[in-house]
Design a protein around this nucleic acid. Structure first.
Lengths: 239, 239
DNA sequence: CCCCTTAATAGTCACTACGACTATAAAGAG
DNA sequence: CTCTTTATAGTCGTAGTGACTATTAAGGGG
């Protein structure tokens, strides 16, 4: 362990891969880049790249996101380590160990290609298939993780702008989980959880024109939900 | 991204570190090895070591566990990736990225030193301080993760032998969480969760001699708890 | 042998959380 | 003005659970 004598020290390439998720027009989207070179040239992939000698995986993840997509200094970016993929053969060129991240952001700007990516684009989650490397699996793992964390953390606000309506917050849950939620019950639950959201006094937003204006809320100081907001097996009514 | 042109490919050493947890005499213990060489020679550390070229991190974790501690082919070992630690400078010798695992096992055998470890030993969790590298942090993260997963998964049975009493299962929760639970309520909850445990027909075990013999149970097919078994802020009565 | 202790198991009660639902309020469209 | 849409308020019944009390089945000490 941690010694040179017993096992030869073998060098590995270490990369980061990012599953950047957001909500656009009520649908879950993921940020993909088109690969400019072999292997998998022309195929879509998650943004990512090699770790530099003097940076942590978290730092590298932010740098790569900025470089490849032009999403520099995004406000409200939630970055979270997913897991590390280390199966031999996952990169046909060489031995690569990749630290995968899930990133959530609100109000996504339009990305541009850059770095090694010929272009970058938001792609609906369901259309993001047949990706390069094992990125299909990483993306699925990211969605699973995010869906699970919605249950017992306040993560959902990471998909929302600084001020949002409860309807928008509910849309986050409905979109990620793929289920419909009862609006009064959702509202009761969120407001009953101390620190989840805070009312913005006197503010309201017209919801796309029609209907009663909704009150605005900000994310509160809480990070976990006690008790959790469970996604029950059979919930909601048809949308 | 994943190209050679833009960034130089920098080699890293990749290791695995294991936080192997078990219950001994009603207390949480962690498996530690004494380092045989610099850096941190003589200090206690989590078992672990370098990844070999043709193995995944999971494979390496099992191999290192066997090599360094003599715990070869342990039955009922639960191995789970925790996260990857990649801060520069976490190893004074060189740039090392480490994939950390949490491992749970029942009825631990007495380990022996081996490999690069001069000795291996079960250490009570609270006594496992001042470890080498950033292993204090990894160990704390492992305990947090296990404690959280007890709430919404059937992980607790991984600490128990194949057949166990509900009292033993409750001890797992109480020990990891550090709280006392009400026995009748715990029982009601566990038995009401389909697939958590299955009764072993006609079997009972004398519980240390005194008291009514307890019925024996096996782990059931379920993996998640719906609804979860929450550790509430103020729970239980003084032990 | 009886009674005490210990631990497992059974059952009660009240309160909370929540799913399902109805009702009201406030906006725009026609 | 009325219809539609969306937000918000409130009601009702039930499942889950915290806090208990009661009973059962073992060993130990007199």
């Amino acid at each position: 362990m941690h010694g040179y004598d017993k096992h030869a020290y073998e060098p590995f390439a270490v990369t980061v891969d990012l599953a950047v998720l957001t909500l656009r027009a009520g649908a879950l989207h993921v940020l993909l880049v088109e690969r400019g070179q072999e292997p998998y040239a022309g195929r879509w992939a998650l943004p990512g790249g090699f770790l530099l000698p003097e940076e942590s995986a978290e730092t590298a993840a932010r740098r790569e996101l900025a470089e490849e997509t032009g999403l520099a200094d995004v406000t409200g970016l939630h970055l979270e380590q997913l897991r590390t993929y280390s199966e031999p053969g996952r990169d046909p060129r060489m031995r690569v160990v990749s630290v995968a991240f899930a990133a959530l952001l609100p109000h996504p700007p339009e990305p541009r290609g850059g770095g090694d990516a010929s272009q970058a684009r938001w792609v609906p989650y369901d259309a993001a298939v047949d990706l390069a490397f094992d990125h299909d699996r990483i993306l699925a793992d990211a969605r699973d993780r995010v869906g699970a964390k919605l249950e017992y953390t306040c993560l959902a606000t990471a998909f929302c702008p600084p001020e949002f309506t409860l309807g928008e917050l509910q849309q986050v849950y409905e979109t990620v989980w793929g289920t419909a939620l009862d609006r009064p019950n959702f509202r009761r639950k969120v407001l009953a959880t101390p620190g989840f959201v805070e009312a913005v006094p006197g503010a309201a937003r017209l919801t796309g024109g029609r209907g009663k204006p909704a009150a605005l809320y900000r994310a509160g100081p809480a990070t976990t939900l006690h008790p959790p907001l469970l996604r029950t097996p059979r919930e909601g009514r048809p949308a």
